[in-house]
Nucleic acid binder design. Structure first.
Length: 651
DNA sequence: GCAAGGTC
């Protein structure tokens, strides 16, 4: 009896094969150089009678991501009826779409391995895209490349497919810990058609909307000589909201008018010995009316004199929390913030380190470590690295006499679990010799982040004092850091003791060394940093952990935005073209759909409803395509507006 | 020459 298992990528296939074979497998090449076949025997599959010691022949192999793509019928060979230039873009809203396989070698390999198999088991990542890739594998196993183009869900091949409901299974796993993988092997489930539908809905909507608007915008801008002949002016349902965030920030900077404000400030003696003083902040913050602040100030001076009364003292322990387990988005945000590294650079470096086996899979949304993972063993690994040796030893030390008290502590749990990958962590300690500067930086950051996750929170003590001067209240807070703990290995953030506060009691009268009415003015927002942009995209559901960096690079490449250095900081600024596009669509009334994240978020929401069985794919696709068609018609009617807005920004 | 999503 033979089982063929197919994972989403070679690294997973290899690791699962290692676990299920106990390391005893034979490696064969496939037709693709990145994909291997791993042959072994295993007695964990439940495809037999009650005999639990029944061994089956297993070939574990993989694909490398998606193996098919959606396109318009007849356009895979150039010159098809729906290729660029051969039809009015509006036809793309009704043109038949077709799912065609690419990666011929990968598909033939799967088909070949499956020829003599009795069972097919899908081991793709347990997320939406993984489910769809599972379906692609199922199609490849049944049809190979014989049926090169397959209309969605309708196959023309006669007869029963070799693999069907009864002999096709899906392994459910979220990480690669041994007992978890064995459990997944013993309890196979079925592919989830709802997730497959959700992905195919996303594909069709993005294809129709993206290609129709891109062709229209490019032709229109080129024909009117707004851009050079070879420049593509693309529209994408992720590109535009991303651009919208940057343009919005630049607009707010441009429109900003500083406003003056006034506030009160008082200071008291730090203690009885030296002359140091502590400033207390007005509880009203600041007010924008000078006369009112002046009146209050006068009143306080007259009735309060030079003394105030202590109205509240709160003294309590406080902590600075260690970071949450590391996700892709957090990695990109922090590398941008701490090291001024673009999202693409940090992900590329992490990708390389993953390929080399130094880091875990770098594309994950999960910020919870599975309880079954042996994190202490991973900390132990870092004793091999001079940079982390002492810290790791201390963390694991059982000897309270010599240790610092910063003991290993199971990481905090976030609230995200993509059910596919654990948080990013170091797998092996790595010598830095053959790494680029970026790779070194990213490895060190991930390791420090991981060790910080496994440490104790920093501990401190916080005292707040509130005093009343006539009618007004003022306060200040002081912090004493008692134990730095995780901060020792995580130098990227600081937490310092503030000046010590005087020892006071409720009801005490204190002398005011100084009272003052001060003024200031509000300042303009800073331009967008890449770190902020990633945060906004993530929070608004624009793109995924794996594609956020791509979208930013894409709109840089289209010259909608451009990086601009200012001192140490690099900002992302919108170009004239970028502003013209956002404001053009704004002026024809499509701002919310095109330059804001709402439409994408709505679609993401619909996809979730498909996954939960509360909406049908057909209804979602129909609805969204109709809406885009409507936007397309509105744009056609108002295209002169796009032109005049462009000229306004480039005049 | 076009989208977004996987992965190399």
């Amino acid at each position: 009896m033979k089982v063929v298992c197919v994972a989403e990528k070679n690294s997973i296939a290899k690791q699962v094969a290692t676990i299920l074979s106990g390391g005893n497998f034979h490696t064969r090449n496939s037709l693709d150089k990145y994909i291997k076949n791993y042959d072994f025997r295993c007695n964990q599959f439940p495809f037999t009678s009650a005999n639990s010691n029944f061994y089956v022949e297993v070939t574990m192999t993989s694909v490398k991501g998606h193996i098919s793509s959606l396109g318009f019928e007849g356009s895979e060979d150039r010159g098809g009826p729906y290729s660029w230039g051969n039809c009015d873009p509006i036809e793309l809203y009704s043109a038949p779409v077709i799912n065609s396989f690419n990666f011929r070698n990968v598909i033939q390999s799967i088909y070949k391995e499956c020829r003599d198999a009795d069972y097919l088991m899908i081991w793709t990542d347990c997320d939406r895209e993984g489910e769809y890739i599972g379906w692609e594998i199922y199609m490849a196993a049944n049809y190979g490349t014989n049926n090169w183009n397959i209309r969605m869900n309708t196959t023309t091949t006669a007869g029963q497919p070799k693999f069907n409901e009864s002999n096709t299974f899906r392994a459910i796993f979220s990480h690669l810990e041994r007992s978890h993988i064995i459990n997944a092997t013993r309890n196979p489930k079925k592919l989830d058609q709802k997730s497959i539908d959700a992905v195919s809905a996303r594909m069709e909507i993005d294809l129709r909307a993206g290609l129709s608007f891109t062709r229209f915008l490019t032709n229109f801008f080129q024909n009117n000589k707004l851009v050079d002949a070879k420049v593509v002016v693309s529209y994408g349902p992720c590109q535009f909201p991303t651009l919208g965030f940057v343009v919005d920030r630049d607009d707010r900077i441009e429109k900003f008018v500083p406003e003056n404000f006034w506030y009160l400030e008082i200071s008291i003696k730090r203690d009885n010995t030296d002359g140091g003083q502590i400033k207390l902040q007005w509880k009203r913050g600041h007010l924008f009316d000078r006369l009112i602040v002046y009146t209050i100030y006068e009143h306080c001076v007259e009735t309060g004199g030079a003394t105030a009364k202590v109205t509240n003292i709160v003294s309590k322990p406080t902590s600075k929390y260690r970071p949450l387990p590391l996700t892709t988005v957090e990695l990109q945000k922090n590398c941008a913030k701490f090291f001024k590294m673009s999202a693409k650079r940090s992900l590329d470096a992490a990708e390389y380190l993953y390929q080399k086996g130094f880091l875990s899979y770098p594309r994950t949304e999960t910020d919870i470590f599975p309880q079954t993972m042996d994190l202490k063993a991973l900390v132990e690994q870092q004793k091999n690295d001079v940079r982390f040796r002492n810290y790791a030893s201390n963390l694991l030390s059982e000897d309270y006499e010599t240790s610092t008290g910063n003991k290993f502590s199971w990481p905090r749990q976030g609230s995200h679990d993509d059910k596919a990958h654990p948080p990013i962590h170091p797998i092996a300690s790595c010598s830095t010799e053959n790494l680029t500067a970026d790779q070194k930086t990213v490895y060190e950051y991930v390791t420090r982040h991981f060790l910080a996750c496994c440490s104790q929170d920093a501990k401190g003590h916080q005292t707040s004092i509130e005093v009343q001067w006539a009618t007004e209240f003022f306060k200040t807070t002081g912090i004493t850091v008692l134990a730095r703990n995780f901060l020792e290995i995580y130098p990227y953030i600081s937490w310092k003791s503030t000046a010590e506060l005087p020892e006071l009691h409720m009801g005490d009268t204190v002398d005011l060394l100084d009272t003052d009415m001060k003024s200031g003015s509000t300042s303009a927002p800073q331009p967008m940093t890449e770190s902020e942009l990633i945060l906004l995209m993530d929070a608004n559901g624009i793109g995924t952990d794996a594609t956020i960096a791509d979208h930013i690079e894409k709109i840089k490449g289209r010259e909608y935005i451009r990086p601009e250095k200012s001192g140490k900081q690099t900002y992302l600024r919108s170009t004239k073209l970028g502003k013209a596009l956002v404001h053009g669509f704004e002026e024809i009334g499509l701002e919310d759909s095109f330059a804001k994240p709402f439409l994408r978020r709505e679609m993401e929401n619909d996809l979730k409803l498909i996954c939960s069985g509360n909406k049908f794919k057909r209804a979602v696709v129909q609805d969204m395509v109709e809406r885009y068609l409507n936007y397309y018609n509105i744009t056609q009617i108002n295209k002169r507006t796009l032109l005049s807005v462009f000229n306004r920004f480039n005049g």
